[in-house]
Simulated scan of single mutants.
Amino acid sequence: MLRSIFFFDAMLVPKIITAVYWLLLAGVVISGLGMMWAGSFFGGLMLILFGAVGVRIWCELLIVLFKINDHLKKMAEKP
């Protein structure tokens, strides 16, 4: 396993994206709650809803790029 990481045989970033997703989601929720508490309830609610969807889409697009890379690698290895 360690060899595959050091020689770039395995991608490390897709595993990290999950942690980044949860951190960004927590940030969106905290920001939205802060906005609600500051007086803009509707704005905070919209930030939570659209922010959560936006973070999810962004992370999924990154994962799709890595999956495309994996599939291209498999196609190149086929005779």
Rank of each mutant, 00 (worst) to 15 (best):
M1A: 13
L2K: 06
L2I: 13
R3A: 13
R3E: 13
S4H: 11
I5S: 07
F6H: 04
F7L: 08
F8I: 07
D9L: 05
A10M: 09
A10E: 12
A10I: 08
M11G: 02
M11Y: 04
M11K: 13
M11T: 05
L12P: 03
L12I: 14
L12K: 05
L12V: 13
L12C: 02
V13R: 06
V13H: 00
P14Y: 02
K15W: 09
K15P: 00
I16E: 04
I16F: 12
I16S: 05
I17M: 09
T18D: 12
A19M: 09
V20S: 12
V20E: 13
V20K: 08
V20W: 12
V20Y: 11
V20F: 13
V20H: 10
Y21K: 07
Y21E: 08
W22V: 15
W22T: 15
L23S: 09
L23R: 08
A26Q: 00
A26I: 14
G27V: 07
G27H: 02
V28E: 02
V28I: 15
V28A: 14
V28N: 11
V29N: 01
I30R: 03
S31M: 07
G32N: 03
L33W: 02
G34R: 03
M35D: 03
M35R: 15
M36R: 09
M36N: 05
W37Q: 10
W37F: 12
A38G: 01
G39D: 10
G39Y: 03
S40F: 03
F41H: 06
F41Q: 07
F42I: 13
G44K: 03
G44R: 03
L45Q: 02
L45P: 00
L45I: 00
M46F: 12
L47Q: 11
L47F: 06
I48S: 10
L49I: 15
F50M: 08
F50L: 14
F50Y: 10
F50S: 09
G51D: 00
G51M: 12
V53I: 14
G54K: 07
G54H: 02
G54R: 06
G54A: 07
G54Y: 05
R56N: 10
R56I: 00
R56M: 10
W58I: 07
W58D: 04
E60I: 04
E60Q: 13
E60R: 09
E60S: 12
E60K: 02
E60W: 03
L61W: 03
L62N: 07
L62G: 14
L62V: 11
I63W: 04
I63M: 10
I63Y: 05
V64A: 05
V64E: 07
L65N: 12
L65W: 05
F66S: 09
K67V: 15
I68F: 10
D70P: 00
H71F: 12
L72E: 14
K73R: 13
K73C: 04
M75Y: 09
M75G: 00
K78P: 05
K78L: 15
P79W: 07
